[in-house]
Design a binder for these strands. Structure first.
Lengths: 232, 232
DNA sequence: TTACCTTTGTGTTGTATAACATAAATGTAC
DNA sequence: GTACATTTATGTTATACAACACAAAGGTAA
């Protein structure tokens, strides 16, 4: 029963990666693949733990964050379905440097990294997949450093909103962000205190760049927001 | 003549990577490998350019940095011999997001990325080398984000000094940093203004953590400096 | 040498943003 | 529904750091 679901997932959703494999290899993946569900805010893995699994977000939303000094966290990356994560630390041969947690109820697939390693060694295309992913993430991380260190509060928050838009898109109305984050998460995404995230969000409302209803954010003027994120 | 030097470099210095290759492949590398010299402060490649070469620092020191708003630069990574760089953007299929420049007179080897790609496809070990490197860099980049955004000035400068120590080591006296950077570079490494880098450096001298003579920095109390870098 | 430019050093002022305080609104458990 | 915890909101104060100004020292070129 369950394995059927997994087979469907592997042959459809995860097509991009695993279709490369021959049927024998695919069987090994299917047999090893496990699905696990996480509640909102539940931790998937934590900093300093030893990486063992390749995680694949099937449904929901996940944040990768790092706790800094004085309890302040910095969100490093946001994951959407179907994306893979949790492999970097394993490849680097070091403990996790960040923590993964579900932002909303989520379904995840897990695959032992040892198996993934084997597969990579046998399939150069799989190797290329990870080289490509790691390279894109590294570029993003380097760019993020500039955003977080050199831009002012308004620029950083605008950047965060644009990131949410690019990452999770709009709802059917073509303007409501398809993610409902706490102000604190918004703050942790843009390197500021929660108070300042709230305040700056209010300014954006006053300037008619967005509307806010609880955690529901509508983007009214995306071009202007992008402009501010470039520096405003 | 020149090719002989290159063959020596490839079979000795670069052993780690290229020894994996068989002699036929090695010949292709040797034939394509070119050495180029750079003067102090000379730019090797610039942000937004299209990546074409794998660069290999043979001698000297190189910084990878990114220009931010208002002319302020952020140093992202420091390269020492024998390290490779310039490949990330190519793998990500995007223009460079950072600029590479020689900190001091440097000798670099260059190899067309197209050739490197070919070799990776043929040699899973080479693929693993880049997966490993990218993974380590990504972890470093993520960690750097916390350092630069959450630590105070003293912590950030201490961190930078420790980085220089870990990256380039000490001279024979076991305490003088083996790199002579302008105060501005030190500032760009630790996300602060040049004035504040100078000021904070002076404080460290007063506190007998270091001594300074021009650009020559001696570390007197490394443990305490590491403590400050963790947050002080 | 002199002239000039860059780097280093230090003091002063201004400001962005954190820290703190407190209240209202919202969500959650019983 | 009531009680309690959490999240959101807003005002006030404090401060770390940038911005600016200027001088001294050091490098570099004629």
């Amino acid at each position: 029963m369950i394995k059927t679901v997994i087979e469907r997932v592997i042959s459809e959703d995860l097509a991009g990666i695993w279709n490369i494999l021959d049927s024998d290899e695919k069987r090994r993946i299917v047999d090893a693949f496990e699905i696990q569900n996480f509640k909102k805010n539940q931790i998937i893995y934590a900093e300093k733990e030893t990486p063992e699994y390749l995680w694949c977000l099937l449904k929901g939303k996940v944040k990768l964050y790092k706790d800094g000094v004085g309890g302040r966290a910095q969100i490093l990356r946001l994951i959407r379905p179907v994306q893979y994560f949790g492999y970097r630390a394993f490849f680097a041969n070091e403990p996790y440097v960040s923590t993964a947690a579900a932002i909303e109820p989520s379904s995840l697939g897990m695959l032992p990294m040892s198996l993934v390693s084997d597969m990579i060694s046998k399939n150069i295309k799989l190797a290329w997949f990870f080289i490509h992913e790691l390279s894109r993430n590294l570029g993003g991380s380097d760019t993020k450093i500039i955003n977080l260190t050199q831009k002012h509060i308004r620029g950083r928050l605008a950047e965060a909103l644009i990131l949410l838009r690019d990452n999770y898109g709009y709802e059917d109305d073509n303007s409501t962000l398809n993610i409902y984050m706490a102000r604190e998460d918004l703050a942790n995404l843009s390197n500021m205190t929660t108070s300042n995230a709230i305040r700056t969000l209010s300014s954006f409302v006053t300037e008619k760049l967005i509307t806010v209803d609880g955690r529901c954010i509508k983007i009214l003027n995306e071009p202007q927001l992008r402009k501010i994120s470039k520096f405003g």
